[in-house]
Amino acid sequence: MTVLLEVENLTVDIPLAAGDLHAVRGVDFTIKKGETLGIVGESGCGKSITSFAIMGLLPQSAIRKAQRLAFSGQELADLTQEQLSDIRGNKMSMIFQEPMTSLNPSYTIGEQLIETLLRHRKVNRKKAVERAVFLLEKVGITAASSRLKQYPHQLSGGLRQRVMIAMGLMCGPDLIIADEPTTALDVTIQAQILSLLAEIQNEFQMGQILITHDLGVIASVAHRVAVMYAGQFVEIGSVTEIFEAPMHPYTQGLLACIPIPGKTKRGSFLGSIPGKVPTLIGDQTGCSFANRCTYAKEACLLKDVDMVSLGPGHSYRCVLSSEICHQNAREAACT
């Protein structure tokens, strides 16, 4: 399979009055055609910033650095704004968190859908409208052609998110980034939107980055999973590897927070990770999870921890050896 997106040592710094905010610190991953990478992590861990960095949508003050940030072999940092905007919405598109505010209230759904296509393809309005209707039906919107004349405020949140998905698909992109596409929606709608996304991704064989804080979502949709904490990937691997054999104490902690039917005893406490996320403002040294980690030692604080590879595709960021990590996982599972 061809490699779609390569990210190597991506960092994003945002200068603030109190000092530099190191929002993303050395993130590496690749995405192949037809593959879904799930990125999980708590709010504020840098998931969204990572996706904005890839799309080139960071706030003006933010500083993006990367050894390599290539889309279809083309280094994105070398492109002019004009060339970058040729790719955005065309080869690579994004679905945002808040469907309620992500559509322009002053224009109809139809206008906002077709302008993407008119921008990137040489088609007439009629063809663009046909494509919009086709995609709206694809994402499960009935009476699509009459919906085109409606304004965003006339649609429910679920419908708007479907419109956003259709908008992302207008040009048939190779890569789609979905940034918590379901957080703002009702639980019943969430499942529909997610299965819709998975279906479409499979049908068009796109690469997908799915950002969420919901591990259940990741387990059912993603092929590979990256666990993000304090601006870093702390573990990355296939779904089976992450869920069956989590290595990093943070991943283990996250998994312990999910109740499993039949396994978690009635009335027992759900897992939780004590402590809070460290501030990312100012210089960082050592493992950033150490202040919440049950296994933390002096050594954790002395120097930055590198990713340890466990074989193709699975690596984790911890000073502990893989045997000890396995041991910890088993003990944690027993209690």
Partner: peptide
């Protein structure tokens, strides 16, 4: 600073289109 301007930019619209069509109108 709104989300829909970010959407407009994410669609690859040219800066002038974003400014004059999407921002100014609102």
């Amino acid at each position: 600073a709104t989300d829909y301007i970010r959407t407009a930019r994410a669609k690859g619209l040219r800066p002038n289109t974003v400014l004059l069509k999407h921002a100014l109108r609102n």
